[in-house]
């Protein structure tokens, strides 16, 4: 598949208190952004286990975006800081696994940042498009090996 025809599927985990509302605002404001994303609303970015991300990549998503409240704004005070640490671990592990770390992205979007939300989605979609389809892990999980 050529990159230009390739429409990636991107899973987005959005914090209920900020980025999810930011996405809403983008919608209400009729901002245009790529339709490659599927949204899962989470109570806090700190709820996301790296396993969720790996599972998405295995199940055929080409990229994953996690978006939470800005530093200092997490409703549970430190959920997003811990999420960032977990994420740093995942990046290290992804590199070891030979999965492009760029497939997994992390951002802060507040409820008032509809504009930023649409930009983040465009940026992530573009980045994942360049990386191409996530065939490796999908195949690894299901094919007969050897």
């Amino acid at each position: 598949m050529k990159t230009k025809d390739f429409e990636p599927k991107i899973m987005t985990f959005l914090c209920n208190w900020c980025s999810y509302a930011g996405a809403d605002l983008a919608g209400v404001s009729r901002l245009q952004y790529p339709t490659n994303t599927r949204v899962i609303r989470v109570p806090c970015s700190g709820r996301i286990d790296p396993l969720f991300i790996l599972k998405c990549l295995q199940d055929g998503y080409d990229g994953v975006l996690i978006s939470g409240c800005h530093p200092g704004d997490c409703h549970y005070i430190s959920g997003n800081y811990v999420a960032r640490r977990r994420f740093a671990i995942l990046k290290t592990a992804l590199e070891f696994m030979g999965i492009e770390p760029g497939r997994v992205q992390f951002s802060w979007v507040s409820a008032g940042e509809g504009e930023k939300f649409s930009q983040v989605i465009s940026k992530v979609t573009e980045a994942v498009k360049v990386l191409g389809p996530m065939r490796k892990l999908v195949k690894a999980a299901n094919s007969l090996v050897g």
Binding site: P50, L51, L54, Q58, I89, M97, A141, N142, L144, V145
Partner: peptide, 22 residues
């Protein structure tokens, strides 16, 4: 694919464990 591995998710199990335990 015409053929798949059973049981599923053995590889994911290890990748998951790596991120949890490391």
């Amino acid at each position: 694919r015409g053929g798949v591995r059973v049981p599923p998710n053995t590889v994911l199990y290890h990748l998951g464990r790596l991120t949890h335990v490391s």
